[in-house]
């Protein structure tokens, strides 16, 4: 009987722990959304931030975050795609490949602050690019590359070898077999991974503080010439993102409504990340269904 009682107690403790984890998440989400959502308004989402006065918005930061995310994806996706194809299709079984794999593993576990500092050293200082969107996008690329590469490799590997043989037996080159047969079939997995990665990039701040910078210069949304310093598209302007903004106002913010602004901004950040999560699932599932011709 003692053993049975012990079993019962242990199993119930496990249940309680699992329930606690759910409660922690609900508490976190609830706290952010309840304290943050009331601050979200059209004005908040579109107007410029204030340094000393209250009533500032997050318009510029929100734009910067999105722009930076797009740039990061534009730079990191092709490289990860090539690297992922290499690892899943071309990599020979030798020491070079194991070094490559180790390098990618190390890069993925590097603290993002170190990646940011490297970006600062090389791009901001050495290449004299200054605090700029481009420096930030490159730093985020370093941060995103290993994850995306691994995701693409795994998605490609999940496609059965039968499909590779089908292409090869028709006299297609390996490259065309991979890009025209294997890649389309791996697409649902790849897109899910890209979108989830995008969520992480969107919320990243440590790698950006010393690369994209901590100031949101006033930009003129009427000017879309990327070579103009005031243009939103200008690659060389410093660009504080939403995540960096939250960090900044909590560390050194002096505006009177700092906590309200951070609550609102945090809520926006969380909502965006949630949307990315949901979006990743929907798009992954529907692509998969389309692919396998199951309705």
């Amino acid at each position: 009987m003692k053993i049975k009682l012990q079993n019962k107690i242990a199993i119930n403790i496990i249940r309680i722990i699992a329930a606690l984890v759910v409660v922690i998440l609900l508490f976190l989400l609830g706290d952010i959304l309840i304290s943050g959502v009331p601050h979200i308004s059209w004005h908040f989402l579109t107007s410029a931030s204030q340094s000393f006065a209250s009533g500032g918005g997050i318009g510029v930061q929100l734009f910067n975050s999105i722009y930076l995310l797009l740039l990061t994806l534009i730079i990191s996706f092709p490289i990860s795609l090539g690297a992922g194809i290499f690892l899943s299709e071309y990599a020979p079984k030798n020491i070079f490949t194991s070094i490559v794999r180790m390098a990618i593993e190390v890069l993925s576990s590097l603290p993002s602050v170190v990646v940011g500092l490297f970006g600062f050293l090389l791009f901001v200082v050495q290449f004299q690019m200054g605090f700029s969107i481009l420096s930030g996008a490159i730093a985020l690329t370093f941060f995103n590359l290993p994850l995306l590469t691994r995701n693409i490799e795994e998605s490609l590997r999940a496609v059965p070898d039968l499909q590779r043989e089908a292409g090869m037996a028709l006299g297609l080159s390996k490259w065309r077999t991979v890009t025209r047969v294997i890649l389309p079939e791996a697409l649902p997995g790849i897109i899910t991974g890209v979108v989830l990665g995008a969520g992480r990039v969107f919320g990243e701040a440590a790698a950006l503080i010393y690369t994209a910078g901590q100031s949101a210069t006033n930009i003129d949304f009427g000017n879309w010439n990327p070579f103009n310093a005031a243009s939103p598209l200008n690659l060389m302007r410093p660009a504080e993102t939403l995540a960096v903004h939250i960090w900044k106002i909590n560390s050194e913010g002096v505006m009177p409504d700092a906590s309200a602004v951070s609550a609102g901004a945090s809520a926006v950040l969380i909502i965006v990340v949630l949307l990315f999560n949901i979006f990743a699932r929907i798009i992954g599932n529907s692509l998969y269904r389309k692919l396998t011709a199951t309705k």
Binding site: L162, E165, A169, L170, G171, L172, S173
Partner: peptide, 19 residues
């Protein structure tokens, strides 16, 4: 080999049409 395989075709044990 690519050119050669165009003349020596192969069908496999399990059907493997493209998606």
């Amino acid at each position: 080999v690519y050119e050669m395989r165009k003349h020596i075709g192969m069908v496999f044990q399990r059907p493997n049409p493209f998606s």
